[in-house]
Simulated assay, not measured.
Amino acid sequence: MSETSHETEGPTGVVLAGGYSRRFGERDKALARLDGRPLLARVVARLAEVADRVVVNCRADQREAFADALDSSAGFDSAATPVRFVADPVPDRGPLFGFRTALREVGTETCALAACDCPFLDPRLLSDLAERLADDPDADVAAVRTGDRLRPTQAVYRTAAARRACDALLDDGEGRLSALFDRLDARVVPAEAVGGDAARSLFDVDTPADRERAAEMLDRETSAERGDGTPREREPGVAARR
């Protein structure tokens, strides 16, 4: 059975945001706006629906801009959900290294891990996984399976077990986040069985084209809600698809 920390409240949210976003271009994708809000702010706000606190892993040079993005974002109450920014001691060592850095600041028994580039993160999915993990004392992580792939982000981990796994993998020279499943006992939940909308929740923005697609998804949903087929005004910097 996994170790248990002294705290037994709900999971801490953890956001991985320390990469260089090379596929996105010159701008940090965590600060790219969708519907007028930075991607990071959208993810943190959605995590806050299932977590009382959030840890954002980043580089030291990102911290100020990230904090400003949250402070200026509509729909996020930093007073209600404390956010701690934790910088990697060595930048750009990969997501597994970033996760280990963030885990050192987590004091709860479990944590919900997300990437900064999933603007439609569904709190219902994370709540479902947290409940499944709580009901399975022998599991170290509850994760979604899409096809033959287990998703290491938008998963809920037992903090102590995840720390041990990160340490062991990094000591072995492993940098892949998905390698955690080689060290942890997983409660596997097929995408079609998990709460919420898994396909939408797991959609990520790696490139400017992905952000355009995300904007179009929002346009379609807004038009459907209005019932008039009229797309809303597109945010600056997002071109219409030709």
Rank of each mutant, 00 (worst) to 15 (best):
S178N: 11
L103P: 09
M1L: 13
L184Y: 11
S2W: 13
R151M: 15
P82S: 01
R59I: 03
L177F: 08
D228C: 05
E9D: 14
A179G: 12
R46S: 12
D77C: 11
C116F: 09
V238H: 07
A79L: 15
A162S: 15
A65I: 02
A142H: 08
V205L: 05
V106H: 03
A130I: 02
R59T: 13
S2T: 13
E64W: 01
A74I: 12
A168V: 10
V54S: 03
D136L: 02
P119D: 03
G10S: 06
R132G: 08
T110G: 02
A114D: 00
S78I: 12
A130Q: 03
A17I: 09
R42V: 10
D148T: 15
G19H: 11
F85Y: 15
V55H: 09
R163V: 14
L150T: 08
L133H: 04
A240I: 13
E235Q: 11
L184Q: 05
V156F: 06
F76W: 04
A67L: 12
R241V: 15
V15Q: 08
G19W: 10
V50E: 09
D138R: 10
V55R: 04
V194L: 09
S5V: 03
V86W: 12
S201P: 02
V144D: 08
A179W: 09
D135W: 11
L70M: 02
R27C: 07
E221I: 03
D136M: 03
A199P: 01
D228N: 06
G10A: 08
G25M: 03
D219T: 07
K29W: 02
D136G: 05
L34W: 04
C111H: 10
R23S: 13
S72C: 07
K29P: 04
V83S: 11
D35C: 05
D122I: 00
S127A: 14
D88V: 11
G196K: 11
T153W: 14
R100Q: 07
A80V: 12
A209E: 12
L34I: 10
F203V: 09
D71I: 06
G175C: 06
S201Q: 03
G36I: 05
V189G: 00
L125F: 03
F97N: 01
N57G: 12
P231C: 00
M1Y: 12
T81E: 04
L121G: 04
G19C: 09
R232G: 14
V55S: 10
A199V: 14
V188P: 02
T101I: 00
M217G: 02
F97K: 00
L126V: 01
E109C: 05
V90E: 14
